[in-house]
Design a protein around this nucleic acid. Sequence first.
DNA 1: GATGAATGAGGCTTCATTCAT
DNA 2: TATGAATGAAGCCTCATTCAT
Lengths: 194, 194, 194, 194
Amino acid sequence: MKLSEKKLYKKKQAIILSAVKIVNQKGYQGATMEEIAAELLMTKGSLYYYFKNKEDLIFQCHEMVLGQAIGELQDCFNEDISNEQRLRKMIAIHIRYAIEEKETFNMIIKPDQTFSKNQLSPILKKRNEYASWFDQVIQKGIAEGDFSIQEPKIARMLLLGSMNWIQQWYSPDGDKTIEELQALYADYLLKVVK
Amino acid sequence: MKLSEKKLYKKKQAIILSAVKIVNQKGYQGATMEEIAAELLMTKGSLYYYFKNKEDLIFQCHEMVLGQAIGELQDCFNEDISNEQRLRKMIAIHIRYAIEEKETFNMIIKPDQTFSKNQLSPILKKRNEYASWFDQVIQKGIAEGDFSIQEPKIARMLLLGSMNWIQQWYSPDGDKTIEELQALYADYLLKVVK
Amino acid sequence: MKLSEKKLYKKKQAIILSAVKIVNQKGYQGATMEEIAAELLMTKGSLYYYFKNKEDLIFQCHEMVLGQAIGELQDCFNEDISNEQRLRKMIAIHIRYAIEEKETFNMIIKPDQTFSKNQLSPILKKRNEYASWFDQVIQKGIAEGDFSIQEPKIARMLLLGSMNWIQQWYSPDGDKTIEELQALYADYLLKVVK
Amino acid sequence: MKLSEKKLYKKKQAIILSAVKIVNQKGYQGATMEEIAAELLMTKGSLYYYFKNKEDLIFQCHEMVLGQAIGELQDCFNEDISNEQRLRKMIAIHIRYAIEEKETFNMIIKPDQTFSKNQLSPILKKRNEYASWFDQVIQKGIAEGDFSIQEPKIARMLLLGSMNWIQQWYSPDGDKTIEELQALYADYLLKVVK
DNA sequence: GATGAATGAGGCTTCATTCAT
DNA sequence: TATGAATGAAGCCTCATTCAT
């Protein structure tokens, strides 16, 4: 049983990855079950063996990607480094996700046009959980005298917003590498909170 | 003939306004020709007298709103004030659009999911035109010794991105007014370029 | 406007008639929008111009047919004839509908498998209204000493049930004409209530 | 091998019972293989080991239930009681089936919407066999001077039809018990044939 | 014998678009 | 100019059926 469960999980994961890919090329409405299935050489009917409906599938995409990202932030938070270093690192993590997993991070942007009332609440919860790690770092930095900012919530939203936007213009062929961007954004955004 | 042309123009304008409203409540795909027409007590068939198709209508929405915003930035640029004051003012303008015309600014965010190849190019052109006013202010500030920033393009994108994000969380019922946000963002973002 | 309204009404009527026909050859689930449309040389998409969805269309089928039948019963009730004659006539009316409009009368049989909660209530109301005309005749007959039956409601249901069943076996090629059946059933059923 | 055959038979029987139950809650089209299987903690794939397809399964449901009912009628026919008593008893049997096995009796009502040409003929045959027991009682009653009716076939159909209809309105919470209905219907219907 | 998984046909519904009037 | 009406493509979803294991 363990085996078949694992297989089921793998397959679900594969579908989710396909969905993530398509959704973020075409958006939620533009992504069709047909295309998501075709990517995996399946037929759309099969998807319904694994997911209740399109919304459910997309919902699970969201849960997976955001869950992973939260895990990374958490690990980072527990490292034994200076607050400035920590925030720099978290900025780097976020930028990497925003660019490389652009695909799924987009779904987070307008969840209310995508999800029904039922699923909206856990999504918002996870979104807040993600953001809260940034809040905590900033708070810690303030408490320990490393940062100085009057409206930390607003500042956090400024930080995240500025990074989310990167995917709008970033191109792998551009003249800045991801690493350079991570460094530049860290420099600039640290000016904000210091 | 001049008169009938004016009438035509007025009508087109009215349709565009209706479209802007609907599109930004529901998104591009969610907005139907039916609803856009209903808002004006017309039937959807009539829209095709004024616009070639849905994409064309939405395209002109985009042109109008962005054109207006560009006009405001331009006026601001020509005012006789300090560079810092100028940038603060432009930040205020952008935030106001991002919130109050959230509706149309959204279309600008992901034009490639909305527009076909043909129309993409003038849109990107206008987008760049809009952004270039910010570039100019920053450049001017640097030239005149008011600002100091090493990668002004990146900084500009950081600025705009952080402001675009506001619409994701701003609510008129929230505990910050638009004016407060305009002031806070100006404060924080000036730290970046100074 | 009067004209176009009339046209709309006629078209709706035509669609309803087509639907009635198909539904009762194939049942509610068996009837497809495609087939209903094809009968009228339309495409299924067009049906949605006239009716909100399949349920709505079928609902209106029901309303029309049952409404007509109720009208006939009502007229019959107001005629100046003996109670026995009246009941005979109503039996004839019901049998005619059950056979010739078999198609729609069938939908009345299992409305709960066909209609959603919303539409169920007006349907049941109309069904009751129909039945109540039989109740009234029986009551009147009892009051005026023409009939004698202890459980008039049960008797009424026995009457209607026996007639509804006719459509299960009646065939125009059979050895009894509709008129003969009307007479025979009237004879037999009057034995019940007398 | 005898044993395994018996096991096979038992299993088939169990599936048929499950199918009967589901079919009559939801109708033929509404009953899914999935649900029929789930009732028995099986998966739908397994059903195809026992039955060729859905139609075949439903067909055998029909055969079983009607077969049982025929058995009961036959026994009743052979009892040594008066013709009136016999008919009363058969009426009671039919009403019980129509109410308690409403589930399967429904399938008998519209076999042509359910079964293909192939299976229709044995079904109609069994239906006729069932009805013929009522015919025989009536004939016997006429021959022995207990009943007097001119068109016995029509009368029989009137009888059965009136009783079949009971399931349309009968409710266990209603103000008549099954026993009361059996008595009332017997009283009323005997008036018809006497 | 049983099942997990896949399939594919078919149904309902939406909506941009067209066109005669 | 405007509209009523029709169209058809496309999308979501269901479900009977199949089959390798």
